[in-house]
Design a protein around this nucleic acid. Structure first.
Lengths: 320, 320
DNA sequence: GTGAAAGCGCTAACAG
DNA sequence: CTGTTAGCGCTTTCAC
């Protein structure tokens, strides 16, 4: 040690008081030469804070969620917080256990509003700072008390539906993923934006490219005169589009195809996929900003942020 | 409290000794009713272990790395370890700071062998258990002392080159990403597998779909009779393929296109992309298994694992 | 402006 | 088999 007590060093590091130039210099020098670093575990025990936040998503493999992680990670890093990521893979059980273990290690949690009800309830009960992200209508979520960054699925679907209607599509099939709490709003928005269209719904078990691929034939040929297929998300749409081409179906000539999320690869499909940007990265950023504010100050200015979905029109829904 | 000392509870929880049925029952009951959970920070301070591991990748947005995270996350979770993810975004500075902060919070680190040299050196010097993943030739890495899960880029490229040669391609362009330490081996393997081909190299600044897209025209028209383009990775290949189609170039009729990594979307491109599977998920799994072994036992059976790349032939390199 | 003492919740070493 | 005694490395009163 070079001259002072541990207390003083602690205060300096945590910017708590002011110091004589001389002492400060001496301490900094010592820190430098000893390459001293705080021990986070000890600090945590003393303060009760970990400077780590948790992020729970339902599927690491979906670029939409990767985008959210990216955004959140950026902000956390800038503010000196670590990030623990958990993928609960749509499993009820999983989610609760993972979340409660996670909660012990972090100062706050960002989680998908699509977590199982029970997990959300538990999260709220835990009294840890927590922010939800994802698609919800104001007041719709049972655990509405949790702060959230939301983006309206209804609105997103409405924009898309209107675009399809204007391009002269009337026989629409919606590839639904009913396991998701976000699914219903998308269908709802679609219906209201296309009052003159006939909308058929096919329910999918999975939200993957493979699911879109294997449902393709029956989706395309299953309804007479089907001229548009809207998918629950871009993953499904990518699989569907691919298989449609393989079947020799013309897109958009015969059928228009669209999804949600604006996953980066959609732009590179042939034809490029029309989609609705759900602001993946921004959701992550805003959620993290809100959470950190909550952690630091105990309160947040706004406890609900709403982002606006943006329709991204590409060739897959062009006029025929 | 219900009857015993803290020590006893600690021992029970950590399965250190055996107990009378009666005491065990009483403790379990108390734990249940109090909903008691260990405080990880306190535990960490006492033991010096955090039960968290760190994972550093260079680009969260590339599904190849997402796959690695996925694999690692799976294994960590199964063994009760948390995972902190860090994306150093190819930035030298970033990597060192992030890594040293990370090191304080975790019991061990899995990192890309493509980290900047300085960061690798620091990692090795830190004496934390660490495992590298990625492409390296045996003994090639300067910091070869670090345990690693490797997959031979040379081999991967060799397989691909041989396939191209057999499909009658002779004028090959390699879209190189020289910033990556993995780049050179790929070119090398390509050259040796295609001794009769003329290989032109174009160096890229980025390893993104956009980079592939914007280089497309000059890559395709820049070399007389170019009949195949191999990309440093699938991201570049996806962008290139897309733009090639947009330019009206026939793939594979006029030009064959291929990449590396076997990113999930490659199968869904039109035409589907030929690529080499670099075992993303398995890399993550194996690396985590190795690391956890290292953490728990201090030693590992094998300190170097080698995975075998698999050539995935798809339509983008079909015969013309 | 600086330091001494106490304690955060746990585990480890040693008794009994 | 169970309890006692000491810390782990930091922050936090509260004096000086």
């Amino acid at each position: 040690m070079a001259g002072v007590s541990a207390t003083t060093v602690s205060k300096l590091i945590n910017r708590q008081k002011s110091f004589s130039k001389e002492v400060e210099a001496r301490i900094r020098a010592a820190i430098e030469t000893l390459d001293y670093r705080q021990n986070p575990a000890a600090r945590s025990m003393a303060t009760g804070q970990t400077r780590v936040v948790g992020l729970a998503v339902q599927d690491l493999r979906n670029p939409h969620f990767t985008g959210i992680i990216q955004g959140a990670s950026q902000v956390a890093e800038a503010q000196g917080f670590g990030l623990m990521v958990v993928d609960f893979k749509e499993k009820e059980q999983n989610a609760q256990n993972l979340l409660s273990t996670l909660a012990l290690r972090v100062d706050g949690i960002i989680a998908s509003s699509r977590l199982p009800e029970a997990a959300l309830a538990q999260l709220q009960a835990s009294r840890k700072p927590a922010v939800l992200f994802g698609q919800t209508e104001p007041g719709q979520l049972a655990h509405g008390a949790l702060p959230s960054v939301r983006i309206r699925g209804y609105q997103a679907a409405y924009l898309l539906g209107k675009h399809l209607a204007e391009s002269g599509r009337h026989q629409v099939t919606y590839l639904s993923y009913p396991k998701s709490r976000w699914d219903h709003e998308r269908l709802h928005g679609l219906r209201e934006s296309m009052p003159d269209a006939k909308i058929k719904v096919i329910e999918l078990e999975a939200q993957t490219m493979e699911a879109g691929e294997s449902i393709a034939a029956s989706a395309i040929y299953g309804a007479d005169g089907c001229d548009a297929i809207v998918c629950y998300n871009d993953m499904i749409a990518i699989g569907l589009l691919h298989q449609a081409c393989a079947l020799g179906v013309e897109v958009p000539g015969q059928i228009a195809i669209a999804g949600f999320d604006n996953v980066p690869t959609t732009r590179f499909m042939t034809p490029p996929l029309t989609t609705v940007d759900m602001c993946s990265e921004e959701q992550g950023e805003k959620a993290m900003e809100l959470l950190l504010q909550l952690i630091k100050t105990g309160e947040a200015e706004a406890t609900e942020l709403q982002l606006e979905p943006r329709l991204i029109v590409r060739a897959s829904t062009g006029r025929r």
